[in-house]
Design a protein around this nucleic acid. Structure first.
Length: 419
RNA sequence: GGAGGCUUCGCCUAGUCUGGUCUAUGGCGCCCGCCUGCUAAGCGGGUUUCGGGUUUAUCCCCGAUCCCGGGUUCAAAUCCCGGAGCCUCCGCCA
């Protein structure tokens, strides 16, 4: 949710942001109108209610005829108050709907345009020179690391088993990521995968992404698509001490319906219904959020360096930002079998947009509660196995283990196994 | 799955039976000031949160807020109904 005060003071800034996203400006005007209506209704209700309370005190003191006379008056007033209250409730609902319809303000410097208008900020690492390229699934099967067939048998399309060194590789990768998170002072977390509707809505995933989300009808719970949901909601309704940013690194399984992606990335584990992820999450003061965003990005790059995968960093265009994000950087790793970069991490600065809905606040210098800023960023996911396997493959189908992962795997090369 | 108890402004707590002087009591903590060789103690004041109005700002005024949502009533922390969370016990179970 955007800041309504900012909207009242400077509606053109919000309109400009909408233009950058390629979205309609009319939602801004609808929100302004809903806000004005709601405030008008509030003023009417409050003055009626004040009168009612005044008379109520007189009633308590009055006796006999005087009391009967007062009761006659207050009875009508009570009906008026009730009606005014109903109007307030209605305008508040309309305001909320209009409020939810307006996405976050885009940060200055974000490239305009849509999905293809991202800006490449940098490219790092040398792409491997391979005579024969096996894709990650072929390698995974050779190594006894990935079993898609039985994944499909047990759970259906886009499910898989990580087996043997595949399982070890993921766990090693995650240990490496957690070790780095701890080194930089983030608090490690293992978070719930099932959350209540308000947590899902508070983080903004029930908007345009609602069709991506698994819902458990019988229990009115949602399966998270990322631990961002649980981590953002972790401090909902709280007032935090944010002299320093509060940072977490959460591990959870992530579930995505992948509706509308039929035929896309059907091979291997690039696009699956369930995967695991380590996610960084930060609560900080809004004025620190831009700097914090760069910090998360730097930590992500450090992880990419540790797994020795070539990558590029892109600055996502305004039209491709999620509704909560003011800016988003993706790191894409090189995938030799596709001869292109694929997304391995994403980090978003949600400024106060998410925290406002979730009521996460801190106290400023004057002791006044203020809305915090939230940021999130991937530190490792199952998809990284794709880039690791493919970039470090050798002609015989074996895969070199990046130095930083060797201690977790207990070996420096993964060898093909007989099936 | 069943039975019972609890939920009050950071923490603890009074108030709920018997609706209105509740503008929610007191303690702890915290903040400001006074006092004092220093410290401690003592004294005085302040301290839920949100919204609206007013204002350069401070102040002030109004409304909401006693877990949440309904209801009864002129009037609800208080009475009634529904729900959530926590705790205890019973049953079942990886």
């Amino acid at each position: 949710m955007i800041d309504l005060r900012l909207l009242r003071d400077d509606p053109d800034a919000v309109r400009a942001s909408q233009r950058a996203r390629g979205e309609s400006e009319s939602s801004v005007d609808e929100l302004l109108a809903a806000d004005a209506q709601h405030r008008g209704a509030l003023v009417r209700f409050e003055s009626l209610r004040a009168e009612q309370k005044q008379l109520g005190k007189q009633v308590a003191r009055a006796k006999g005829d005087e009391k009967q006379e007062l009761l006659a008056r207050t009875k009508q007033l009570a009906a008026d108050v009730k009606a005014a209250d109903l109007t307030v409730t209605e305008t508040a609902e309309a305001l909320r709907a209009a409020h939810l319809a307006v996405p976050n303000l885009v940060e200055d410097g974000v490239p305009p345009g849509g999905e293809d208008d991202f800006v490449v900020l940098k490219e790092v690492g040398l792409r491997p020179e391979l005579d024969t390229v096996r894709d990650h699934l072929e390698l995974g099967e050779l190594l006894g690391a990935i079993d898609m067939e039985r994944g499909a048998k047990v759970s259906g399309a886009r499910f898989y088993f990580l087996t043997g060194v595949g399982a070890l590789l993921q766990m090693g990768l995650f240990q490496l990521a957690m070790a780095q998170a701890v080194e930089y002072g983030l608090t490690p977390m293992v978070t719930p995968s099932l959350v209540k509707p308000e947590s899902m809505e508070g983080t903004g995933f029930l908007g345009s992404h609602a069709s991506e989300v698994y819902r458990l009808e019988a229990d009115d719970l949602y399966l998270v698509g990322t631990s961002e949901v649980a981590l953002a909601s972790y401090h909902s309704g709280e007032i935090l001490d944010l002299a320093e940013p509060r940072r977490y690194a959460g591990q959870s399984s992530c579930y995505r319906r992948e509706a509308g992606s039929y035929g896309k990335d059907t091979r291997g584990i690039i696009r699956v219904h369930q995967f695991d992820k380590i996610e960084m999450f930060s609560f900080c003061r809004p004025e620190q959020s831009v700097e914090e965003h760069r910090r998360l990005l730097a930590w992500q790059e450090e992880m990419l360096a540790k797994v020795e995968v070539p990558y590029r960093v892109i600055d996502t265009a305004a039209g491709d930002l999620g509704s909560s994000a003011a800016r988003k950087f993706d790191i894409e790793g090189w995938v030799p079998s596709q001869q292109r970069y694929r997304e391995l991490t994403s980090t978003s600065n949600c400024t106060t947009f998410q925290a406002r809905r979730l009521a996460v606040r801190y106290r400023d210098e004057d002791g006044k509660p203020q809305v915090a800023a939230t940021l999130n960023g991937t530190l490792a996911t199952t998809r990284w196995l794709v880039a690791i396997l493919e970039n470090h493959q050798q002609p015989d189908g074996s895969v070199r283990v990046p130095k930083a992962l060797q201690q977790y795997l207990g070996r420096d090369v993964l060898e093909p196994v007989a099936r």
